[in-house]
Design a protein around this nucleic acid. Structure first.
Lengths: 340, 340
DNA sequence: ATTAGCACTCGCTGTCGAAGAGTGCCAGGA
DNA sequence: TCCTGGCACTCTTCGACAGCGAGTGCTAAT
């Protein structure tokens, strides 16, 4: 049986009412608060069909209906138009983000802003190393046997690593290494780095080869290990605002949020910017997030996403509002990083 | 009226039982589970005195007693000896922390370890800029008009900041600036920096003076603004493990933890390492943390603390265990940073 | 196809009584 | 003087139960 327009309208009404009231919605309330032009009895018939098809369900016999994950899915896919942000909201985003002084600041500000706009948990991933380019490599001579390697990307990320030297080096030797690695890598996209690093040892004098080799190893390690790993979180307190949102406790949710790996999974795997992704309830593979929804999107300038950001909340969330906020913040962050 | 030894013993027994059972403890249970050598009736009399003096209280008439903040305070000050960690625990701390590759890693590992050991919320502050020394300053020429300033401290912190140049610079001019700032600041404690920065403009040629001035401004800003600001948090999920710990919800607690400023206040103001500080319940000035206790300590090598770390949990916490874990982790972190 | 009416289900709420835990106090004993 | 056993009292907790109200499903009429 296919759903006619009115049944879809009823589903939308149920989702909207349930999201705003947090209570199962009955046929009478629906007829009163929405201009559906039909009586409660008719709505009841439609509801029965919607329930048979698995879009809504009853917590218990004498209660109204609430949407199922499948119902929210249909709502998001076909029934909701993304509502544009108000002009003040747009201005607020812009002015708030424009004050950022460096990458850390950009990420921190975005994640807070997102948490505040959506009143949910926000996650922002740092620009992926793998999709950035090398802006500069610096070697700092800490002591005879230790060298600090600092890697700076064009998106403003700074990674550092201490390197134990096999032999003591003179200052001019450190300079030679510095020149060589910068000549080989500066300006190159990180993806090309492994190939470039291979040829580094050839660029320096014989006596520096062993050092350059261990330097190359550390470089590759740094780029590989940390390539995607950093995220920032904000708004966890929003989880507790309405305690009723989660059956049982929020413990599993908080636990899941502690795992960086999980967070990255939530946001990750994003190729093109501006394509919103919504994961609803059971669609989340992560144990413990089965009662939450995640709205995420890639950000970055041009056609390639640098990384992702998103929002996590109860399945009963304001999808249109959340989606537009997430999209707007991603757009501004992308612009901001391109300007750097 | 002064408390005799047995009353103190009764208080200790009440605290210990309440901490382990989470339930008000009555006179009979106390007589059975502790070898106090007196009858429940006697204990009841002692309890009445302890209650009059404000060390314990009754949730309601027909319930046992629970310690008050004042009771916990006495317990911590006079009745509890810090229990040493087990050998395996010590070894676990050491091996876990030894794997760290840089400062970020040290902080991340410590905070997780602390959260895991105490099963509470852990907070670790990054080494304060103001108490570190400058290890190196790097200037990276981003474009004609923009310069990236990277500040590296002897504790491994890296701070960066983009600087808009008043005029375009040639590469050799950037080098001159770099040499000058490093000559002036490298090796100096950050506390001396303001004075040193003053004299920087004199160290370069006339045409670089304006640039050096704005560089100096940014340097001072960076050191001042971010001097204490960074902390890392872990184990928030532990707050929800036993929901009964907090009257009402954990919302205010989570909200407080979102504020960096609050976290810094919790840990901050620590001068000497190894002096544990315990703040119990109402002793916390921060609104929303009135039902929690904070155990914090400074860490660092030598007589001066670099920064602080600590743990936050319900007032009903295992103080001896928490205190020893906090102290142990602080000690290892201090050693680790000294070795860097 | 829609609607009004009606019986039915079931969760929520408040009351009541019994049970249980713990106390405070008192009188007797070391 | 301090400790102890006993006892009456208070107060929460829990289960049972009835009444209420919300909401549904079904049926017959339009």
């Amino acid at each position: 049986m296919t759903l006619d327009d009115r049944k879809l309208e009823v589903l939308r009404a149920i989702v909207e009412d349930y999201v705003s009231t947090h209570e199962p919605v009955g046929s009478r309330a629906l007829a009163e608060r929405h201009c559906l032009g039909v009586s409660p009895a008719t709505i009841r018939n439609d509801m029965a069909v919607l329930e048979d098809d698995g879009y809504i369900t009853q917590p218990h016999t004498s209660a109204g209906r609430i949407p199922t994950d499948k119902g929210y899915r249909l709502f998001v896919d076909r029934l909701s138009q993304v509502k544009p942000l108000s002009a003040p909201e747009r201005r607020a985003i812009q002015t708030f983000l424009d004050g950022a002084v460096d990458l850390d600041d950009v990420v921190r500000r975005s994640v807070r802003l997102l948490a505040q706009l959506t009143r949910q948990v926000a996650v922002v991933q740092y620009p992926a190393l793998s999709r950035s380019a090398v802006r500069h490599l610096e070697l700092v001579h800490l002591s005879d046997s230790r060298l600090l390697l600092v890697l700076i990307t064009d998106t403003g990320r700074v990674e550092q690593r201490v390197l134990q030297l096999p032999t003591a080096l003179a200052e001019h030797q450190v300079a030679e290494l510095r020149t060589a690695v910068n000549a080989g890598l500066t300006g190159r996209p990180m993806a090309d780095a492994p190939a470039q690093v291979e040829s580094l040892p050839d660029a320096v004098g014989m006596e520096l080869r062993p050092v350059m080799l261990s330097l190359a190893t550390v470089l590759l390690e740094t780029m590989a290990e940390r390539s995607e790993e950093r995220v920032m979180l904000a708004g966890t307190a929003n989880l507790t605002r309405s305690a009723l949102d989660f059956p049982g406790t929020i413990h599993p949710v908080l636990e899941a949020l502690e795992e960086q790996v999980v967070l990255l999974k939530l946001i990750g795997e994003i190729e093109t910017p501006s394509t919103l992704r919504v994961r609803i309830g059971e669609e989340n593979v992560v144990e413990g997030l089965r009662d939450t929804s995640v709205v995420s999107v890639g950000y970055g300038s041009g056609g390639q996403a640098l990384a992702g950001l998103g929002v996590l909340g109860p399945t009963r969330m304001d999808y249109p509002g959340t989606m537009s906020a997430v999209r707007a913040v991603a757009r501004y962050v992308g612009e901001l990083l391109a300007r750097q």
